[in-house]
Design a protein around this nucleic acid. Structure first.
Lengths: 351, 351
DNA sequence: TCGAGTTGGGAAAAGCTTTTCTCTTATGGG
DNA sequence: CCCATAAGAGAAAAGCTTTTCCCAACTCGA
């Protein structure tokens, strides 16, 4: 039973040479037949095709790549090991590329410079056509230097080098979406509970929040900065609903826009614990649209989705066009978010 | 400025031929010098090495692979797009392989047969040395046929083909860990709330749960099967603490072993809502050790960790040995889980 | 029938590295 | 001083495909 007649456990791949020999032509002709190039009788072409088919011929990509100086692979660098951010991005990239015959090397570099260098070297050795860098936050670099690599580089959801091409989510736009949605629903005292000041997105979203309120002539409550946790959501509810709020003259919020879904989850739980109904008394909107959290809250959480898969797709396609030699403007492209409406924000009055 | 001293934006990689020319030797000698092969004077070797260094020479892996019939790449197939299961597995695989110079193609096939075939073909074209299949549950196949591919295949955390090599978590062992821990803590009325009957692990864990209780001479409450959700955790608490339990003569549980962390989260919240203290009145242990959930519960959740990264590492190393031509027994290897103790299970009496 | 043009197909180089021979030169012993 | 041996380095093939150029044979018009 070591090795029997039926397809051997390890068979050596069939080469073009063998196909050609069996079809009684030269390798040149065989190659042309299979690629639809060159001139030959229809029968010759067909015979070669059939032979190739029958033998299960598969052109050796390594040889092709060597010749074309193009490997049809790209490297994807991430530091988001358990990544709910970078995973959708990856998925989008892969989606965009698989149809073009391009495969993706996934390399997790953690936050380890040595590991980063190791992976980048490995990619370069393998002659990737390009590299995409992605991460877990927009305002931090990966622990690798990607300048002057000799291959195109695109940044997606991570901090780019100056002069590079990057795709990020439009956090300010996403925040507008949420606040304006509250406004349309008739909410007028809208609070904002978000993450720590060390994140740039915190400021971007907070500013958008202020802008919308100002535009609409609504009272602006100063955003509450804390951590990205449920616990902070609880605590923030205490601050919002126990203390006096300066501007609004003691009035309690009827809506809370949260910086992520975990905070929102904490807020909703805390509201329930103090007998406030969501969405009837207070509407809540989260950010990230982390499905498993958003759907587990009671009621299910309305949340801003950053369209990360789309972002990845754009990044992949752009990289490909760069590889193809087409020029592209450097700069940061912000891609729009979308609001996924569930039940925590309420329905329009009388709607 | 077409090509100046500092690295050009897009430089063509330097070849061995150029190194050899500059060092004044043949490519054969250059190759041998850099690989520590052949015989030559120490100075010649050093001169070549220096030249290569200076030029930033990087052997073209495509050429090497073509020659060695070994690409130093492996394909990783998964259907767990947003995967908290397959991601740690991937990370372990990558970890195990990066030091050996092996890169990983990540291919997400969703549950789409066409996509699966597409990716497998792409991998085969690219001459991967082997393939690892991973997924989101142990008892389901990926939507691809991986038999007779001509390259070694390893299954990790997904249902293997018969006769293949697979690594999975030892769910029964993990369940024992949890129940025995409760026992050591002095808990005597231990309930089990878990997922749907359609999952094999549900039965494996439930049986282990029964076994341990029987061994210890404790009352066995019939496991409560439901869904993997928080909501089911809430509901299960109702069933456990409202109704009469047959065997235990109406006594309420003092411990609940949950089938995953989300259920555990629901159980803990529900217990709190009815005024029962965790861990003082009731201990709770979850499964999966999904950090972000386990650490957000109040109190933080003790949970069974499946050691998925280690599982991935094993899978990677085994694949490599297979690629190296070493034989390996087919079969399913169960890797042990470990209990991550936080606060929800309680401390030993007087401890 | 001759020359021009067309048709079908092959030879060979290129892409880059590794490895096996082979060759030349130097060295040492007798 | 000569031969045997070792040392140092190069030529060439292999690995597989694509593409350019070339050749032989055939067709057709004059």
């Amino acid at each position: 039973m070591v090795s029997d007649a039926s397809p051997a456990p390890t068979k050596t791949p069939v080469t073009l040479r063998e196909v050609a020999a069996l079809a009684g032509v030269s390798v040149a002709t065989a190659s042309k037949a299979l690629n639809g190039q060159g001139r030959m009788t229809a029968e010759t072409r067909e015979r070669i095709r059939e032979t190739a088919q029958r033998l299960g011929f598969r052109p050796n990509s390594l040889a092709q790549s060597l010749l074309r100086r193009r490997s049809f692979t790209v490297g994807l660098l991430t530091n988001d090991t358990y990544g709910r951010f970078s995973l959708p991005v990856m998925s989008g990239i892969s989606d965009a590329l698989v149809d073009k015959g391009v495969s993706v090397f996934l390399c997790n570099v953690e936050d380890d410079q040595r590991l980063g260098q190791l992976h980048v070297d490995a990619m370069l050795d393998k002659r990737v056509d390009g590299i995409i860098a992605t991460g877990k936050r927009i305002d931090r670099h990966l622990p690798v230097d990607l300048s002057n690599l000799g291959v195109p580089v695109i940044y997606a959801f991570t901090q780019p080098d100056p002069g590079a091409i990057a795709f990020v989510s439009d956090d300010a736009g996403g925040a507008r979406l949420a606040v304006e949605h509250f406004w349309r629903l008739g909410r007028r005292r809208i609070a904002h509970v978000t993450g720590p000041a060390s994140f740039e997105v915190v400021h971007a979203r907070a500013q958008a929040y202020r802008d919308v309120l100002t535009e609409k002539g609504l009272p602006v409550m100063e955003p509450l900065l804390g951590s990205w946790s449920e616990a902070w959501g609880h605590e923030a509810v205490k601050k919002l609903f126990d203390g006096k709020l300066s501007k609004s003259g003691g009035e309690k919020p009827d809506a809370v826009f949260c910086g992520n879904d975990q905070i929102a989850r904490g807020v909703i739980d805390a509201l329930r614990e103090r007998g406030l109904g969501v969405p009837d008394d207070v509407g809540v909107i989260g950010f990230d649209n982390w499905q498993i959290v958003a759907e587990a809250t009671r009621p299910p959480l309305t949340s801003v989705d950053m369209n990360l898969a789309a972002l990845g797709r754009e990044a992949g396609l752009t990289l490909l066009s760069l590889v193809g030699g087409e020029p592209a403007e450097p700069g940061i492209r912000k891609l729009p978010c979308r609001l996924v409406v569930r039940q925590s924000c309420g329905r329009p009055p009388g709607g």
